[in-house]
Each structure stands twice: as structure tokens, then as C-alpha cells.
Design a protein around this nucleic acid. Sequence first.
RNA 1: UGGGGAGUCGUCCAAUGGCAGGACGGUAGACUCUGGAUCUGCUUAUAGGGGUUCGAAUCCUCUCUCCCCAGCCA
Length: 566
Amino acid sequence: MTDESSRPTDFIREIITEDLKKGKYDHRVHTRFPPEPNGYLHIGHAKSICLNFGIAKDYKGTCNLRFDDTNPEKEEQEYVESIIDAVRWLGFDFGPEPRYASDYFGFMYTAAEYLITAGHAYVDSQTAEEMREHRGTLTSPGKESPFRGRAAAENLDLFRAMRDGRHPDGAMVLRAKIDMASPNINLRDPAIYRIKHAEHHRTGSTWCIYPMYTYAHPIEDARENITHSICTLEFEDQRPFYDWLLERLAEGGLVQRPLPQQIEFARLNLSFTVLSKRKLIQLVTEGHVTGWDDPRMPTVSGMRRRGYTPEAIRNFCERIGVAKRDSTVDLALLEFCIREDLNKRAPRVMAVLRPLRVVITNYPEDQEEELDAVNNPEDPAAGCRTVPFSRLLYIERDDFLENPPKQFFRLAPGREVRLRYAYYITCEKVVKDERTGEVVELHCTYDPKTRGGDSPDGRKVKATLHWVSARHAISSEVRLYTTLFSTPEPGAESGDFRQDINPASLEVLSSAYVEPGLAGAVPGSRYQFERMGYFCVDPDSTRDRLVFNRTVTLKDAWAKIQKAQK
RNA sequence: UGGGGAGUCGUCCAAUGGCAGGACGGUAGACUCUGGAUCUGCUUAUAGGGGUUCGAAUCCUCUCUCCCCAGCCA
């Protein structure tokens, strides 16, 4: 909202605009993105990142990157690095250093002692199982713990003993004292501290008790003066506790008003993919993909390797909007966003993925020439290049059909087509393997007067084919990706998402040819292979051999016709 | 069967008592040295019943459907 005329675009910005109008937070807006460092970021996180950092930007506020590292058994340094990397790559700035929940462990401990002293918390010596039994059910109230009535002094001693490591894991927990009969289960004396004799990735062995998310998160927000604490829908039931805790701490003067407020929105679901952390981990550990950055993964690192741009992802996140209803976004929208971006910026090159040899019989054996080609018709500033032409070429196997159906415009016996930026050629002869009947080579003639691709007599052709000169082309590997799952909602039918893994999600083409200008292309560079799609140089490339990942195909009218006829 | 949320084109998001709109998808066409891009047309929706109102997607009411919650996970 940088000017008067702009209006909020979602219900969260509406709330913020209203708060600003009322002066609720002294005209400040401060958000945060709080991942747990126990996995890699995916497109669903990107939605949250764009929301939180986007709001900060819109309202000239601040957004913190904060690691919610309250469970040492699950969290690792490796993840914090990948998350930092992903956030920066997406184009967001959180200052020189991220924040950590563990930065506040000391304060959280002090606050817990205050709660005990004020009679708002107690140490419970029940086992986990006993606690579960006493919690009641969704429809029946819980029962109070026999330890609920302990005096503050005893609780304090016990809690300090917990901290000092005098009890094993699970021996006791600190609980908030609220209401065991509450219809909201989260208010039935939730555990707020547990014993874990575990090494923490940042605090080492300083602590053997760790706060629960429920307790830690509101405190982290308050400590960072967060104004709007935006999270996903499943935390909605948690909000009464969030408010309860902060109210108690404000009463004790441990946090200042105005208190941050929690606002929930619906997480992203995407068709043909899974986004739950558990499922993503399973894909990696069970070897269904090659790693977190496998180009078929919906992780930020996977999409990056696939060839997605930060701009396309940000644009996607803006287009899908923010609301409270559960929804599943069509993968086609994501693909639209990356095509839209790459169409404007990706240089065009010619690459033949499944080569078919073509001999231009009337082109002199020892002759070759350089032809002018436009780098990007959408961007005149991208300039021109030349591509070599000679007697022996490769064209795409799919661009020739011996017995073409009516709607097939491409090369066929006796038919004339244009070779892009080069010449008109006519297919004169089809050479086949005698045993298999497979077409192995085409003999064509070219019309020298059509150099550059135009015929002086105004003669039209129905198709333009991409090609490479066999002598000059660089042999490369091309990895063709389609969706990792073959159904829009993986697991919907069988209950096991792995049943719907698409066995054909990766096709490796090891004898593709790209034009010579691509020599030395660096990993991460993106190109449009004319008529085939957008491709990105994979880090697996070596000096001698380029490897390309297909980011997304071009829209393909012919493929659609073929599909419709099946 | 407790509590908390949510129901609008195929999909996602708007409309905040006043002509249900946009984007993606789909489809038809124009154009084209990429069957790309671009442009144009068309397509389809307020979960259901009752009520309030001159007027309801919006307010009231009843019903239905879907999601979340019974970790010492986040």
C-alpha cells in the first residue's frame, strides 16, 4: 500500500489496513516467516514467504526470518542453511542474520518461572500415557491431574530440578494451568516445557528442557515486536492459548502491549503434487527421487534446478491469492507463470532432442555457411547470432511422418517445409533400416533461392522446423520431466500417495544435439529450445557434456490434436 | 455426538445490501519464419430450504457438505 489509491488485496491486508487506521500498533507493521529447520522449503512455504515479506514491503514494515528451533531432536544446521538460501534466492531480505527461537530460551525460562509463581503453571509428574487418559476426548471433558494442586514453591523446585538435569526424559513436564474441561482441547492444561537430554544445533548442551511450540511461538513474536503473526489454518484452535499466554505475561510485565495477533490463512495445495513434509521426506528417503533438489520436487531447490525463476514463483504466489478456504491450485497456473516469464527472457536456440538424419543432396559436400538467427523475438535487445548450416543435418524425429494425417503440417515424402532461418527443403527419399523398417535417414533437396527462410516467389510452406548441423552440433543429455504423480490428487484413490507415482516422470535423452553456440553454457542458464520448451543447464553438466533439464514444454497445439484423436 | 473454521465458474481469487467480475484452463478464430508468442470471440458459478428487504453471494434461520483439533511435534 504505497499510495492512497491502492486497496488491500486479501483479508489479511484488510485487517492490517484497519489496524493502521486505528493506530493499533503505533502505525508499525512487523511480520515474520517462522520455519522449523527440519526440512526443505517448498512452494507452499513460498506462498507464506511471499505473503509475509510482501506485506512488510507493501506497508514499509519489516519481516523477520526466524527459525523455530525448539525441538533439538528434529532440527539440523543443514536445514537452516538451505532455508536461508531459498529465502534469499526468492528475492527477500531479512537483514544480515536470521532470528532463532533458541535466542529466547533464557527469557522463556524466566517467563515460565513467573507463570509458576503466579499460579498459572505446574509441574506434572504423570506419564505421557496418564496425561493422555486424563485429557478426555473431543466430546468429553478431561480430568485434573493429581499433581495439579502442587504449591508454587514445590513447582519451582521441581522445574529447576528439571532444568538442572536431575530427571530423565519424560519424567515430568511443565503445564499451563487453564481448564481441563475446556471444549477446546488445546486449553486443557497444555504442556509447555518438556525434558529432552539432547544436543541442540545452536545451544549445544546448555539446556535439557525445551519449550513447546505452543508456548514458545507467542513469546518469540512478542520479543520481536511482531504485529501480525500469520500462520496456517491448523493453528486456529491454538489462538486462544496464544492470547491467554501473552495476556498472563503482560500482566506480569514480562511483555509489552500492544500484543501481537495471530491470523490464519489456508495453506497451498497444488494438483499433481504433494506438499506435506512427511511425504516429501518419504520421496527422498525411499529413493523415488534423487534428492531434495530433484527437479521433480516442489521444493524451492528442486524448482530452481528445474529452471523456475524467483519472479515466476513470486508471480504465482500473487495470482493464487490468500483466503481461508481449503483449495487446490491447478498446476497449469504454475506452468503458465513460468512460461510467461521465460517467454520474455529466455534466449532461443535450436536443439534436436530425438535426431533424424537429413542429407541435403544438392548441397555441396564440403560447403558450410553461417545463417543469421534472432535470439529472442520478444526482446529486440537480445540481438542476433549465427548458426552453421551444412549438407548433413538433424531434425526432430517427430517432425517427419511417412503417412501424415490431414492435420500434420510438417515434413513428409514429397512435401516442402522451411528450416528455420535457413532454407526451404523438400523430402525426396526415405531411407529405412531393411530389417526393422525404421526410418533412419531422409534425402532432401534445398532451394538456394530461399536462403534465410523466405521464398522470393512468395511460395508458402505450412511448417517451420528446427534443425542443427550434424558436423557442428554439440551432443548433449536432455532430461525430460513431467509430473511426479499421474493423478491430480495423489493417494486419493488408494490412500497411499506412492501408488500414484508416475513411472514416466523422467525420460533421459542421451543423444540430443544442440547448436554450437551453447558450448560453455553455465549451470542455471535458461533457454528456449525452439518449438520444444524451456530448458535449464543442470549442475551435473561437465566441461565436455552439457545436461539440460526441461523446465516446461511450450504450449503444443499439435500434441493437443493428437491427444484429442486418441 | 464437543470445539474451531470454510462453502461463488472446471480451478484459484474478487464483489463488504445495488448489473456476480478477473485470472488460469477449455474452446473457436485472426496473425505468425516457433502448431510458440500476441490479439479477438465464446464457455461455465453464489451448497440447499425458509425468512428480512424495493433489492440478498452479502443480513437472519434451519439443513447439508468439507477441513482442523484428543504429541512431552510444529
